[in-house]
């Protein structure tokens, strides 16, 4: 019995080591986190980020200028949001949005900002503070905010409940390299007719909850093909 158990255990150890491919993977099982950083680097290469007007953030602007994704260089020093998306409110207003009915801190003039604080933690930049290095801080400090969206083969950063900034895992094979994803609830509650929002698609998207349960949810989508 002992010998047989040892044999089975050995077989499993070998199989497990082989399947996790290399030693690094064996010790760092966060394959999504690692891969998210790699693919975000590819996105930044295709669409470089720039320092925002507020010196503390990096900004990745959509090619049409209608929306931007921003993330803070030093999350421990965050005054408002550590990650956020900012986009033009006018298409929503035209579709019936009553800005006063949006939750506090969302409407800023003609723009809407959806963002969130990340878990503050010690910063550990090694070398230059680059957009990618700052993104790596997000992955390190608040890994839960970064996820993989299997339905679109995207990674995403949650900026507020149900709203995300997503980018393609592999830009070479995906026709949606970068997508702004909005939870339509606050907008519909504030009078928006989803079908009338120009520049944003309104469609059901397969998503999953925090227990991994899959379901479909309606979203506003603003996708971009950067190729």
């Amino acid at each position: 019995m002992v010998e047989k158990t040892a044999k089975i255990l050995s077989l499993f150890v070998i199989l497990t080591v082989l399947t996790v491919k290399n030693a690094d993977a064996a010790f760092n099982t966060d394959v999504v986190g690692r891969s998210a950083v790699t693919s975000f680097a590819a996105l930044l290469e295709a669409l470089p980020a720039v320092p925002g007007a507020d010196e503390g953030v990096w900004v990745l602007a959509a090619p049409d200028g209608g929306a931007r994704f921003a993330w803070r260089r030093d999350v421990s020093d965050a005054r408002v949001w550590d990650v956020f998306i900012r986009f033009d409110a006018r298409p929503f207003v035209k579709a019936g949005l009553d800005l006063s009915k949006l939750p506090d801190g969302v409407a800023f003039g003609d723009e809407i900002v959806l963002g969130s604080r990340l878990s503050p933690g010690p910063l550990s930049y090694e070398g230059e503070v680059t957009p990618l290095a700052s993104f790596e801080q997000i992955v390190r400090l608040d890994r839960a905010s970064v996820g993989y969206h299997a339905a679109l083969d995207h990674y995403g950063v949650t900026v507020s409940e149900g709203s995300l900034f997503e980018w393609a895992k592999d830009m070479g094979t995906n026709d949606k390299d970068m997508v702004f994803v909005l939870n339509p609830k606050i907008f519909i509650d504030a009078g928006v007719d989803p079908a009338k929002v120009e520049g944003w698609a309104f469609a059901p998207v397969p998503v999953e909850d925090d227990r991994g349960r899959k379901f479909e949810a309606d979203k506003f989508l603003k996708p971009f093909d950067l190729k």
């Binding site: 993977a25 099982t29 966060d30 999504v32 839960a144 969206h149 925090d210 227990r211 349960r213 899959k214």
Partner: peptide, 28 residues
């Protein structure tokens, strides 16, 4: 089974570690 909706929705009250979420931590 927990990630399977709606088979075990009645298990909502049981904890599910976030580091085992299939899509976020598939290898875990």
């Amino acid at each position: 089974m927990v990630p399977m909706d709606p088979i075990v929705q009645w298990l909502w009250w049981l904890p599910f570690p976030s580091i085992l979420r299939p899509m976020n931590y598939p290898l875990n």
